[in-house]
Design a binder for these strands. Structure first.
Lengths: 250, 250
DNA sequence: CGACTTCTTGAATTAGGTCAATCCCTGTGG
DNA sequence: CCACAGGGATTGACCTAATTCAAGAAGTCG
């Protein structure tokens, strides 16, 4: 829980708003948007800062007009798509520093739904203004393409997980991937709080809720992890990687 | 078989090469690249036209330096990714008018492998030159983002298929999706030739080869389709849609 | 302090996978 | 032009991983 608490700098920000992007505690996380330091004033022009969503609240839903890209400052969200007959597939979990809504670029309508998993704070980037800025600063457009191509790569990895891996492999890989994302954001990669339910994890990985529980238990018996509700500690990343069949790679 | 033959115009082109893009028989299919008529001369500058690959030949492979985007003029290809321990997931089948290699934009290395399923003819777009053109014609960059966001949407649909649908639903949806793509290219949507093996279909859909066969047989017994090796006719699109749980939608 | 949601575990069931055998195109080389 | 090899497709029998159903424990929130 330690691990997921909003870092101090960000908390302070919430107190002394408003503030320019370049002074934002998570502004490095906006970097994916491709902003050179020099472009920061531009960004300030188009970003609506600090909007807060509570657990369960909707950021956007399919068929809704595409008007903002969301950058997560703190907290986390899930995105999902739905079949005609109501089945849901969670397509991703998203944490601080990630962008939501990019897949709407083509159709100008959101194609998925995004929902807060816990209280979260976001910056909204207005599309209409962005269009303008994209004209002025082509570098940003290029960065966005990079982000999207990165997303495609991650989506394809999930396909592989869904299509070719056993339940144990899926969960091991899921945990490792979460761990890496936390670590890369200077949170603990070995101990963190899951902001999503077992049901959500199962849905994301194409497994039943019960299967997720059982495998968590099995991993715990094997000493690979320690879980207690949503708190989890990865005790043996090496062995976990072996279960996931991931070669070496720190 | 009728259906998959290269259209006459394209065939003629192969005879009277070289020719400018705007006279190319499938140039409408390059449109996804975002070319206004006015930009066509630009395109001509950067496109290497008509390269032919035979069944089984590799267009590119993971970790190879990203140097071209490929536009398919005729024929078809599959793209796939591979786990550390050698399992393969086919991430897409691609037909005339589609682009290959976009996911390499971020890392400057291809992340997947592309292989010809049958004799195919492609245009190669040189990345180095493209970069230049992108600077001059921002509209193209925007179009590429649209294509990528479209790809993300399709990838997410495949996730849903892999994670939440039964074998019958997967295959029904696969056939319908193929049918639509052919129809949108003025081929027959009700009768066509599958350029991929049962094994490939199964791999793509997360099923065993045998399961694909069995379900094809089941569909045939039910009168939904008629198959004979790789030739297939969809006899009852309505019922097939029902199996796939797809609402109405022409 | 209830009412609810989330998590966990056990038992029974099943969809789809694996293994194995056969058939049948297709393409190649003599 | 024919024979033959090899890959793809098909079908049956059996098996297993994961689901579903059920019931209870443990948090959590109003």
């Amino acid at each position: 829980m330690e691990a997921r608490r909003i870092p101090l700098r960000a908390t302070q920000l919430q107190i002394c708003e408003p503030v320019a992007c370049k002074q934002c505690g998570v502004y490095q996380l906006c970097m994916p948007l491709g902003l050179e330091r020099a472009d920061m004033t531009l960004l300030d022009r188009i970003v609506k800062r600090k909007e807060v969503y509570k657990r369960g609240q909707l950021l956007f839903r399919p068929r809704e007009r595409f008007s903002y890209i969301y950058a997560i400052r703190s907290g986390s969200a899930k995105t999902s798509i739905t079949t005609d007959d109501g089945r849901v597939q969670i397509t991703g979990f998203h944490v601080a520093g990630e962008l939501l809504g990019l897949s709407a670029l083509a159709s100008r309508f959101y194609t998925s739904e995004a929902r807060a998993l816990e209280t979260m704070s976001v910056c909204k980037v207005d599309i209409a203004c962005l269009d303008e800025v994209l004209r002025d600063v082509p570098a940003i457009q290029y960065q966005m393409m990079k982000i999207m191509s990165e997303q495609i790569r991650r989506d394809e990895e999930l396909m592989l997980l869904l299509g070719k891996c056993s339940a144990e492999e899926r969960i091991a890989e899921f945990l490792i991937s979460l761990s890496r994302r936390f670590a890369s954001r200077n949170y603990s990669g070995s101990q963190f709080r899951l902001s999503m339910s077992r049901l959500d994890i199962g849905n994301y990985l194409g497994l039943a809720e019960e299967t997720v529980c059982r495998i968590f238990s099995r991993f715990q018996e094997g000493g690979l992890i320690t879980t207690e509700r949503r708190n989890i500690r990865l005790n043996d990343l090496k062995q976990l990687s072996a279960v996931a069949h991931i070669d070496a790679a720190a």
